[in-house]
Design a protein around this nucleic acid. Structure first.
Lengths: 195, 195
DNA sequence: CCTACCGATCGGTAGG
DNA sequence: CCTACCGATCGGTAGG
């Protein structure tokens, strides 16, 4: 519910949709909820946006792009693999802290898109996955990382671990994004066991 | 769509609901879809079940209980922490392999329950979390695991990593649940870095 | 940007 | 377990 101040724009609608989808998920948020949030009747939203699904698509794509933008330079930095993994995790946590709700939407709710739109998103998800895949493969090739029977599991579980932070991270919590990133990087690199 | 053979029971309805909720999520699966799956008209489902939400609640609770049953004895086995973590991960993967779809529902879709029902589920989720918390704290206390500034992050990220396997595991894939469990346990215990 | 409304679909029920 | 239907809500549109 907006108290009648300022113009409504596609950006404002997206912003409120991020919040609502993040809290309650796409299928259970109605155009009437979004309308209430920006102070418009449901039908009037279509002056600014073309459909509910288009709204979701934009949110998901931008949500993933934020991560690509932040992590790609780290991967291409030429530093040793361990430093790059640490840097990638740190960059991931920075983006997460800045876009928790959008990340929640991007990570899981692309499944509500039509199959054509899912293809667009899948391409971006693959690019994200390849970033971690590169660090890991190059790290194993250089001997910085240990050889392992199933490096794919390491890639997917590292990403899964990072994305799972979305489910419990809170900007108001006692753990900062940097704290969490450091702890995650330590665990990923040296493990839990006493060396 | 069932081809008119055998009696319909609450169990059959639950079984088909697990599959449908797992594939498409609770809010976008209608009672008409479930009816089609078991060969009943939507209204007739209410002979066997009391409500759609009750159906979800049972699926989620049983889904979590499967994990509690499998992992609790491992945690209480009295073995060293590293062996128990390995055993807990292995047990987790066994349950996952046997109940992929139910796990998908249990992990994320409890959010669609009413707040009273969410409380029931939260209690079970906490019990699950405490299992890993115990292994980790006892491992640190005994010196089997390294001291770390934020053990909570290790607990939550380990669980997050395990639950994320749900999103890419396939019984038809080349990686068995045991393969994945071993790789995860190695990564969690000794990390990626060359020692 | 609102008024007024569309057809479709939702979970669930009464009465048999 | 079906027939027949309930009120509510859905995303979206025509016409102004």
């Amino acid at each position: 519910m907006r108290s009648s101040s300022g113009p409504v724009s596609a950006e404002l609608i997206e912003q409120e949709a991020v919040r609502l989808f993040g809290e309650r998920t796409y299928p259970v948020v109605g155009m009437r909820d979004i309308g209430d949030a920006v102070g418009l009747l449901p039908g009037s939203l279509y002056v600014h946006i073309s459909s509910k699904e288009e709204l979701l698509l934009r949110i998901v794509e931008r949500g993933i792009q934020n991560y690509l933008d932040a992590i790609t330079p780290v991967v291409e930095s030429g530093e040793p693999a361990a430093a790059r993994l640490r840097g990638a995790i740190s960059a991931h946590m920075s983006v997460l802290a800045a876009t928790v709700e959008q990340t929640r939407v991007a990570v899981h709710q692309w499944t509500y898109l039509s199959s054509e739109n899912q293809k667009q998103v899948a391409a971006m998800r693959n690019r994200y996955e390849e970033l971690f895949d590169r660090i890991l493969r190059e790290g194993i090739a250089s001997g910085d990382f240990r050889a392992m029977p199933h490096p794919r599991v390491a890639v997917l579980s590292t990403i899964g671990m990072l994305n799972s932070v979305t489910e419990w991270y809170s900007p108001d919590g006692s753990l900062t994004a940097a704290d969490i990133g450091e702890a995650l990087a330590d665990n990923a690199l040296v493990g839990l066991q006493q060396p």
